[in-house]
Design a protein around this nucleic acid. Structure first.
Lengths: 361, 361
DNA sequence: TTGTAAGCGTTATCAG
DNA sequence: CTGATAACGCTTACAA
């Protein structure tokens, strides 16, 4: 009620007891038996005054700030980041905690400064997130603080981390195409040599092999992981009608965007003439494309949740074990309209071109 | 060096002085003259021990936490949010502060709970951000806390806010098209009755009028603010060759995405047959489309910066004035490749442009 | 020039 | 059952 800062002292005065007693009843101190009547009185006054403990004082005393830090390289700049923050915040809230988020912009100096800032504020732990799945090394400052990595792995077996299950994603993508009946597949992979590229290809190949697909029916080419890269790769790949893949898996949705364009230019309809599977389920792209893009979602929210939960158990446990848990989280496949059984009719060259579809080059 | 928690007391002991002296030298207390030699000693020991003041204690004592809160309805879920966070963080860092970010998900209850959590942590102030430009009313809890609104306006003249300059955006869009030579324009506006819709239309019309454009040469229709909406509107609008607008301004980039598709289906080339201007400069869409979309960028980062700076001056000033500053920030136009002079040739069954206004590019 | 001590708002120990 | 009182780590009168 009364605005401003009402302290435990005022509650005590109002209830005609000592602050000790107030603290006892408000915190439900185990060993303490308090007269029901005074307890009521205290509770009533506290409520009436709108008392809420000052957590700075509380933290100082208990050495527990109920605060965690989320530091990321590009955490705030990228469309994916949000979900991670959200996941972390949701579990933080469940632990009466709130989260500081800081963006380092890949600057070591900024990172150091900000981590210091967090540490001086006695954060109970730190979530260290990378925007893109990659191996990192833990900043030295964090050696003695509960920390868990998100979207990043670490050689040190003592640090916990969560990453997407890339190869499961690759498998799922293959499964979607294969089970729709496709037998000539292609994977347009990222040129960069990163875990996501390795993992997705590995899974894709593995599942294709499991279906008995012949080597020559699975082409893998690499390109820049953007619309332009996807476009160029697709132009190259979609040329010969005989050998053209009927199902294409793209490293990410942005590349898929380029593949759509290439297909349109070549007068190929998605999904009738080519089925396409993306990766990321990127907001406004996957669902903005026409037809809607079937894609594998990255488990950002889930990683945030897992990591935060892991962090809180680490915080409340005495000493961290020498071997920290790690996880690879599988993202769901989001079915939209870019995958269909391969077209069985005559080959494209024999068909009549629709009049409104002049090819542009 | 020594990890863990080194306190001022340890520094004092190591330097052979009292904690008062340590505090004095470390804080450069104005009125105090300290012997250069002891000052050196203190500094040296502090550095050697790697001392950093515990800000919880400091905050408790000084009643200044060097901490601000950024609460938003969807702050973390949307691709725009990041820039706001970034702007806020950048200026926070310049003020030795760090920012809590919380997402309310439009739930009043969550909002209350989280704001309480921030207040109990003694945040120095709060940035209250809306994901989409709209009027809001300030949560009652924030009445006595320095607060500034981002992407939201407020009827209360005592609260400060920053919003995008929508009508300037509309003007700029019109200018881009008109100065490229277009004389038959269209604006595909959002059906929702929101400030962005009003403002952009108003600006667009105003600038068109300033160029002397006749009423009938500026069509405005509304649609859902997504690719589907843009697509349908464009299909409707791009039909008759005679009356077809040569320049289209879309309420946002997502709608523009749909317009691209409609244009492609109608065998109209962008920008040769239709020039398109979007709004938002949304990552991965505006630059992912082909050809690249010319668009008006929303000043998220700038709003974050302005608001945070405003917040810090408010924090360090005694009492807030009855009339708080507000601002409308103009976003830059991002020139890409979706705008060109109207095509003068005859490849389409289009007749000549009205000869009255034959300007150039 | 330096030190003592009070106090920020809590919690925890230990008496009464 | 309840209440002094000492921390938590720091800043800041006020003394010396």
């Amino acid at each position: 009620m009364v605005q401003g800062k009402v302290t435990i002292k005022q509650v005590a005065a109002a209830a005609g007891v000592s602050i000790t007693t107030v603290s006892h009843v408000l915190n439900n101190v185990p060993g303490k038996r308090i007269h029901p009547e005074t307890r009521e009185r205290v509770l009533a006054e506290a409520a009436r005054l709108g008392y809420a403990p000052n957590m700075l004082a509380q933290s100082l005393r208990t050495q527990r700030s109920h605060t965690i830090g989320l530091v990321g390289d590009e955490i705030a700049t990228t469309p994916f980041a949000g979900k991670i923050i959200l996941g972390a915040q949701d579990v933080a809230a469940a632990h009466d905690s709130v989260v500081f988020v800081v963006n380092t912009g890949y600057e070591r100096e900024t990172e150091d400064r900000e981590i210091d800032a967090l540490l001086r504020r006695q954060v109970d732990g730190i979530l260290y997130a990378s925007m893109y799945h990659r191996p990192v090394e833990l900043p030295a400052k964090l050696a003695n603080v509960p920390t868990v990595l998100i979207n990043a792995s670490c050689a040190d077996p003592a640090v916990a981390w969560a990453v997407p299950d890339e190869s499961a994603g690759g498998e799922d993508a293959a499964e979607v195409l294969l089970s729709a009946g496709h037998r000539r597949l292609a994977f347009i992979n990222d040129v960069d040599e990163i875990p996501a590229a390795f993992g997705r290809e590995e899974g894709f190949r593995r599942r294709a092999a499991a279906w008995g697909l012949a080597q020559e029916d699975l082409r893998v080419i690499t390109a820049e992981a953007d619309p332009g890269g996807g476009y160029q790769a697709a132009r190259r790949m979609l040329n010969g009608a005989m050998t053209r893949p009927t199902g294409i898996f793209c490293f990410n949705d942005r590349m898929a965007m380029g593949v759509y364009r290439a297909a349109a230019e070549l007068n190929l309809k998605v999904p009738r003439d080519v089925s396409i599977v993306g990766f990321d389920n990127q907001d406004f792209i996957a669902d903005g494309l026409y037809p809607g893009l079937t894609t594998i979602e990255l488990p950002h929210y889930e990683m945030g949740v897992w990591a935060a939960e892991q962090l809180f158990t680490q915080i409340s446990s005495e000493r961290k074990p020498a071997l920290a848990p790690t996880t690879r989280i599988r993202g769901p496949v989001i079915h939209r309209d870019s995958v269909a059984p391969p077209f069985q009719g005559s080959s494209l060259e024999e068909r009549h071109q629709p009049a409104d579809r002049r090819s542009n080059a």
